[in-house]
């Protein structure tokens, strides 16, 4: 892999030594990514522009998706689910979970496909290959914040108890984005080698939704299983924290959120290492 050499070969220009035999350290990879942060932003801006270019409703689509699902869930599921400890109306809970969940889902789908969608660029231009993936995740973040705006506007009508804890949505979003990025780079890298990933993904994401507290609150899971649940599925702890801080006006459960955070960071790190390990041959295989 490439490494910025300290050896001054030319009179004034820094020398770059390229060797294909080693993967870069995480630190070196992140430094290289930081150098290309403008490029990540450029990918994100392009994705947003392209997405809304020909959509008549434009940004309204970001509102239609959560609202439609909210109505559906409320009509179909509300009576079957008993909300014990959160005791907020079901629509408030469902909307507080749907907005971060839709971000996770859309970001993972867009991020996983991003590298292949830009395969022409990968074959012609050098850049850290995670740039289009992270750009796609960033582009999806806009919908999340539109969704949060929608939530704040609807909160009085769906019976949410908005309080100061709502501000926690910012750090929780960062964790969600890290989780989405970690999953996306891992699946995106595998997608280059195994095109099956693309076909399995929509189904897997659906399963993930039902395995996460989106339709039902975390409190419906027996307490003794909750620790294992949020450790295996970091989305669960994050979504529960969203529900508590946005809908119930309570602080998140520190234990559950902590476990989910640990798993999220682990997913991010493992995903990135996997990506960097597979990255050197991307241009040859894609």
């Amino acid at each position: 892999m490439a490494a910025q050499g300290a050896v001054g070969g030319g009179a004034h220009l820094p020398e770059l030594v390229i060797e294909g035999t080693r993967s870069p350290t995480t630190r070196a990879a992140l430094a290289e990514l930081w150098l290309h942060r403008g490029l990540v932003l450029a990918f994100a801006i392009r994705d947003v522009k392209v997405k809304y270019k020909q959509a008549i409703l434009g940004v309204a689509w970001a509102v239609v998706q959560p609202l439609g699902l909210l109505v559906l869930f409320t009509l179909l599921v509300a009576r079957a689910v008993t909300i014990r400890e959160t005791d907020v109306p079901y629509p408030a809970f469902a909307l507080s979970a749907l907005i971060p969940w839709l971000f996770l889902q859309n970001a993972v789908v867009a991020g996983t496909g991003a590298l292949l969608a830009d395969s022409a660029l990968v074959r012609k231009i050098y850049f850290p290959r995670e740039a289009p993936i992270l750009g796609a995740v960033m582009a999806t973040a806009i919908e999340f914040w539109i969704g949060v705006g929608l939530y704040l506007a609807l909160a009085p009508f769906v019976g949410a108890r908005l309080g100061p804890t709502a501000i926690l949505v910012v750090p929780l979003f960062v964790l969600c984005a890290l989780l989405a990025a970690g999953v996306s780079v891992a699946l995106g890298a595998l997608n280059v080698y195994y095109r099956d990933v693309r076909y399995v993904l929509p189904f897997a994401v659906q399963l993930w939704m039902f395995a996460s507290p989106v339709v039902y609150p975390l409190s419906t899971v027996p307490p003794r299983w909750q620790v294992l649940y949020v450790t295996l599925n970091p989305a669960a702890g994050l979504l529960d924290a969203f529900g508590r801080s946005l809908a119930s006006g309570m602080p998140p459960e520190p234990m559950l959120l902590g476990l989910s955070t640990v798993t999220t960071v682990a997913v991010g790190w493992i995903g990135y290492r996997l990506f960097k390990w597979l990255e050197p041959a991307f241009a040859d295989v894609i």
């Binding site: 030319g10 392209v50 231009i125």
Partner: peptide, 30 residues
Amino acid sequence: RISLPSAGRIRLCGRVGALIEVGAGIHPEL
């Protein structure tokens, strides 16, 4: 730097710009 060597070493002094099939990243909708 699009592809990496299997063995050996390449030293570059200065920024490299490649004109290899220009326009690969141009988006038709924009």
